[in-house]
Amino acid sequence: MSVEPKMPKCWRKESKPHKFCPGCGHGLALKALGMAIDELGIQDKVVFGCDIGCSLLAWDFFDVDIVQTHHGRTTPVITGLKRANPDLIGIAYMGDGGGYAIGSQHLVNAATRNEKITAILVNNTNYGMTGGQMAPTTLPNQKTETSPYGRSIEETGYPTQGPEMVAAIARDEAYAARGTVANMRQLKGFFKKALQNQIDGNGFSFVEVLSTCPTNWRTDAKGTWKYLEEEMTKFFKVGEFKTPAAKGEQS
């Protein structure tokens, strides 16, 4: 077994240590992404777009070109870039508020149009940057700043099932998966497949990442991992929901 490098090659050393809170899952998600970029050898082709939300803190994270966009608008920016120059590899990186609430129309339509981009959405069950409000992914009965008595399913519905939705609406060439920062090797594998799907010119690829937000969850290290591994996985199934390899089988 080879030892994983401490810091991916494409990470920008000058911007480390990164700006996320201690124990935040964003850093881990970006580590898995960095390793995927390194292993695919695509550092010269990647353009990384980050949303507004805690993902904006990644605006100088990598030694790749980066654009910070508006809340929810990273998917169209990267779509426009990729349409204009298909040689680039476009990554749209966003939170669950950005992707499933304010920018949900962009996610749905990019998926149905089979845009040849890779969208990565970090699910931390709340709006991190604005101080822990309820998100589309907030779990039933979970307390947040705007659901102080716990999320009511009657009033606000169920947590959004993103990769399942993308798998349902996207063409056979698309890729949809949900990984977790609790399984870095698997997450890196999902990222690699998602990027490879774009490189091959197949179509839209989407990876949701189950992540942590100890600051707003108000959890200690143990509580954080317990929430991620035990509570979140009750609603959010980890795995692949659509793989382009399944093309033939589905028809």
């Binding site: 353009v47 508006h70 920016v77 426009g80 990729k82 349409r83």
Partner: peptide, 12 residues
């Protein structure tokens, strides 16, 4: 989206 994709085109 029309505006933000236009921005993407410009960035490219």
């Amino acid at each position: 989206s029309a505006g933000f994709t236009t921005i993407g085109g410009v960035l490219a």
